[in-house]
């Protein structure tokens, strides 16, 4: 099938390896990948801040560009939720409402796409390390993704997955929240890091780079040896550093 990979703005600029690994994995599985260059953002920052008109300005071209896609895979659970759950709300009673609903049905978060749509769990990856998985809230609660990433990790050779306490508790990123309420965001992140450290893991893995950016920012600042890595980087066997 032809998979349309939507690489959101921050993954494009800050975490290109995540997208590159996704392309490689999907191609290895025999699919054609296309990546629309003319869209970069789902409009979530404006939407979450309450600027729905501005969000629609960003979302409209995205909606249009993805109209004819067979399946849309998004490189972030959070942006996935934006397209799948919030576009229908954003365009409620607007001419684009039907298009938003239609798109919603073919949008997938990456790990869920592999497991639920393609029925793949074993990608032949190797990653000899102890890891713990952080559930990004949008993926977990808006999209209901809990088991897919774990099924994929289970099949990675040499990888040991240890669940942390309160794995489902928010890391504190929350988009613009992290800048508008940095003290709360930081405290939440510290609680998350403490839970992760207690597992003795070498890596925090997630299917959302935005959470990892925040958590890694905290860990680097305190000089912790604990590292973060995106699921796709483990599965694609092609790590950033």
């Amino acid at each position: 099938m032809t998979v349309t990979l939507f690489v959101p703005c921050f993954v494009d600029a800050l975490f290109p390896q995540v997208g590159i690994n996704m392309v490689r994995i999907l191609e290895k599985l025999g699919h054609r990948v296309e990546c629309p260059e003319e869209i970069a953002c789902c409009g979530q920052p404006a939407f979450n801040s309450g600027y729905w008109d501005e969000a629609r300005c960003v979302a409209e071209p995205t909606l249009k560009r993805l109209k004819n896609a067979e399946a849309v895979v998004i490189a972030s659970g959070s942006c996935g939720a934006m397209l799948k759950v919030f576009y229908p709300q954003l365009f409620e009673n607007k001419p684009e409402a039907a298009a938003a609903h239609e798109l919603s049905h073919k949008v997938w978060e990456f790990s869920d796409f592999l497991v639920k749509k393609l029925g793949v769990t074993d990608l032949g990856a190797k990653f000899p390390a102890k890891v713990t998985f952080h559930d990004g809230c949008h993926g977990l609660r808006e999209l209901g993704i809990k088991s897919s990433p774990r099924k994929l990790l289970e099949k990675v050779e040499g990888l040991e997955l240890v669940e942390m306490q309160d794995a489902e508790t928010c890391c504190g990123f929350g988009g613009t929240f992290s800048a508008k309420f940095p003290m709360i965001s930081t405290a939440m992140g510290e609680v998350k890091c403490t839970s992760a450290k207690q597992t003795g893991a070498d890596y925090i893995v997630s299917n959302d780079s935005s959470c990892l950016m925040h958590v890694q920012g905290l860990l680097s600042r305190e000089g912790s040896p604990l590292k973060t890595i995106h699921l796709a980087e483990i599965l694609g066997g092609n790590q950033q550093s």
Partner: peptide, 27 residues
């Protein structure tokens, strides 16, 4: 970016972004 950087390190913009890579290798 001080509200971010007061407690957190910044992730730098990658030397080659995804889209640059895509243009070079796939497009």
């Amino acid at each position: 970016a001080r509200t971010w950087t007061a407690t957190r390190d910044v992730q730098p913009v990658a030397p080659e972004s995804f889209k640059e890579w895509w243009r070079k290798n796939k497009s």
